[in-house]
């Protein structure tokens, strides 16, 4: 399997050469189409990893490559979603979805001509996450879970090959969270995209990912890597099985050690 996202011996710090290290000697590679999860204690540099992989930050040492190319500018084939849905309150859900297309090339120059086609794409995407018929609503008319779904759609509208999720469900209640796990699971299965999920929820990581990386406390580095070979498609019931819980337990032990 060729690496799609490849970080080699990456060290990074904020605030120039004098700051503290956020990540140190970080090496990981994620295959094309793979679902990877990164877990770790809080403040371990998970978000730095996201910024490095999308080209918002460039490493102080080491190299980052995405899709075989060294990252030297923002990675436009990536879509991102965060814990906060960050939808624009003055735009309807549909208009929020079209925002990335107003920015990223080649869609930007084609938007006026192909608007109808793009609107259709947005409507389909909304329907696929269970938001059919909500496109004319404003974000504040949607519940938290619905806003998160819309935010996911915004991350996917330009059909990225890489989806980066930074604790996307942290602010949701447990039931909504599990619903959205299934939404993500299905999006990954149907679209064949590479997903990197940063989370502190171990059950979430085990349920969704093919491979899980455990990061140490700051400065972050990978201290363990665990393949999850639970058969797909996975249903929520597997979270109660022994094998599932065994993996969660194992990851937990790593994290407990990492915090010491």
């Amino acid at each position: 399997m060729t690496a799609f996202v490849d970080l080699a011996a990456v060290s990074h710090m904020y605030g120039g050469g004098s700051g503290t290290l956020a990540v140190d000697d970080l090496t990981l590679s994620i295959g094309r189409g793979e679902f990877a999860a990164v877990v770790g204690p809080s403040g371990c540099g998970k978000s730095t990893l996201m910024k490095l992989a999308t080209g918002l930050q460039f490493p102080f040492k080491g190299t980052v490559a995405v899709a075989g190319k060294k990252v030297s500018q923002p990675v436009k084939i990536a879509g991102m979603a965060f814990q906060a849905p960050t939808l624009l309150p003055w735009r309807t859900t549909l208009e929020n979805l079209l925002l990335p297309l107003e920015i990223v090339q080649p869609h930007r120059s084609e938007l006026r001509r192909k608007r109808k086609q793009y609107v259709e794409r947005a409507e389909n995407l909304l329907a696929s996450v269970g938001l059919g018929g909500q496109s004319e609503k404003y974000p504040w008319q949607l519940s938290g879970g619905m806003q998160m779904r819309a935010s996911l759609c915004r991350a996917l509208i330009h059909e990225p090959q890489l989806l980066m999720l930074d604790e996307p469900f942290g602010a949701l209640d447990a039931f909504t969270r599990e619903e959205l796990w299934c939404v993500i699971r299905d999006l990954h299965a149907t679209r064949q995209i590479t997903v990197v999920l940063v989370t502190h929820d171990l059950r979430e990581a085990v349920f969704l990912a093919d491979r899980i990386f455990v990061m140490s406390a700051r400065p972050g580095k990978i201290i363990a890597e665990r393949k999850v070979e639970l058969v797909r498609p996975r249903e929520l019931e597997i979270t109660f099985q022994n094998e599932f819980q065994g993996i969660v337990q194992e990851l937990r032990d790593h994290i407990v050690k990492a915090r010491q």
């Binding site: 910024k51 999308t54 080209g55 918002l56 500018q73 923002p74 990675v75 436009k76 990536a78 991102m80 979603a81 965060f82 906060a84 960050t86 624009l88 925002l99 990335p100 107003e102 920015i103 990223v104 090339q105 915004r154 991350a155 330009h158 930074d166």
Partner: peptide, 21 residues
Amino acid sequence: EPELEDVLKALGASKLDIMRK
């Protein structure tokens, strides 16, 4: 919101884009 700025910057948005949108 810095997150939103990140989303747009990662798409290649210029500062002017972010201001306008």
